[in-house]
Design a protein around this nucleic acid. Structure first.
Lengths: 233, 233
DNA sequence: GTCTATATCACGATAGAC
DNA sequence: GTCTATCGTGATATAGAC
């Protein structure tokens, strides 16, 4: 849940160019931000359109003008943050470097508590096949896995890591992302833990096995730079 | 979320011995099982007392005779499964052995999908400090961490692992449980993944680092035996 | 594009009969 | 111990005025 695809860009772009929505795009953004906060705090089932509308300063009816219904709003929210995340973890960061950035990426997320709450809550909530958003969330996570697997392949093809068979690669990728998600859950329950350090330690051992060489983590100032990038919205 | 304390035993025992509740204990159990299913499927906020009552075959009013309110019911559910889990992961399994059993323990959980759904959903949902169950769940996870840390200490004192400082131990423990929780989340979204194998692989590398020796996993028949134990309810 | 007003429904909880 | 009946609340969603 810590990284995402760029689905939904076209959708948002459409609203930017089509006439009738010219003035609505700003309000639409406000709604998405408020919805992120509310869904993060109370989950999807627990969060109400009323609360979101109250936050924005409009009535619930105004929300259903911009988004078909509650479900559509959540989907828009998820897609919005997928796009946002591309700014922190650009698509042109490939191979092993992408994995090396994961701890920073997770650390970034801790700067906005509501986001982690939302993604984890939604993921757990929608895990049941009967949940209206199950397919959407499942596909989203599948894409994330495929993408990560591709990057590990890339690393191998470019000689960044020792040879490894496909099945093994998949297991490594799943373990790494499990680590990320699980640790973010722990951070939610106890924000005092040193998420960056624990993640670097654990991921470092994974990567060390992959490369056969000790891991050297980048200068912490990289964090500051990335933070800056994310804050610039 | 994969292992728990034995809190609540006294509570349940009281209902067994005290007169007025003599006949209520069976119904109480039915309610707890139904509640596990419903909370697992819909989360705490999303699950309703009505649905639980419908499952049991009584009216919602009957539920509030057995449990003060919705919150009290969920707490009873969590405590019930903590006790159940002690049968699979007995308290007298100490040190490194306890960690070696974690993959089987997680695998056990996959036999009853509702349980993983419930624990993960509740954990994510209640992670917000404003949630009525936040303190309860936080304390529960804290106890789990302290217990696990204690077992790693035990392993060190008995020469099962190489020396490690306290801070490092805590990080190792947190990483291991993050792995467990995160992988169970992935399993919920895609039950086809080989949870046992991925967990043994990843945890194996942790333990290998701790001991300095390769890990040999126990005969898979151990799984069958444990399953049998859990099924016997 | 946003409002007010409202339809419709489900929720948790309680009172009191049996 | 369980029932019926009901209260008060808050939910999503829609209709129609402005």
């Amino acid at each position: 849940m810590s990284e995402g695809s760029a689905a939904g860009v076209a959708d948002i772009a459409a609203h930017k160019t089509r006439g009738p929505y010219r003035n609505g795009i700003k309000r639409r953004r406000e709604i998405i931000l408020a919805a992120s906060k509310v869904f993060g705090q109370y989950g999807y089932a627990g969060g109400s359109l009323r609360q979101i509308a109250l936050d924005v300063g409009v009535t619930p009816a105004a929300l259903t003008r911009h988004f078909e219904n509650k479900e559509g709003l959540l989907i828009a929210v998820l897609e919005h943050w997928d796009v946002e995340n591309d700014r922190v973890m650009p698509a042109d960061v490939r191979g092993l470097t992408r994995f090396m950035l994961l701890p920073y990426n997770a650390y970034q997320h801790t700067l906005d508590r509501g986001l982690i709450e939302m993604f984890l809550t939604i993921a757990a909530e929608s895990s049941n096949p009967n949940h209206p958003l199950h397919q959407f969330v499942k596909r989203r996570y599948d894409r994330l896995m495929v993408r990560a697997l591709g990057e590990l392949h890339y690393a191998q093809e470019h000689g960044e890591i020792l040879p490894m068979d496909d099945e093994q690669m998949m297991r490594e990728v799943r373990a790494v992302y499990a680590l990320m998600d699980g640790l973010q859950l722990q951070w939610l329950l106890n924000p005092d833990i040193d998420l960056l350090r624990i993640l670097q330690d654990a991921l470092g051992h994974f990567i060390q096995r992959w490369t056969g060489k000790p891991v050297v983590w980048a200068d912490p100032r990289i964090i500051a730079k990335s933070v800056e990038a994310e804050r610039a919205d």
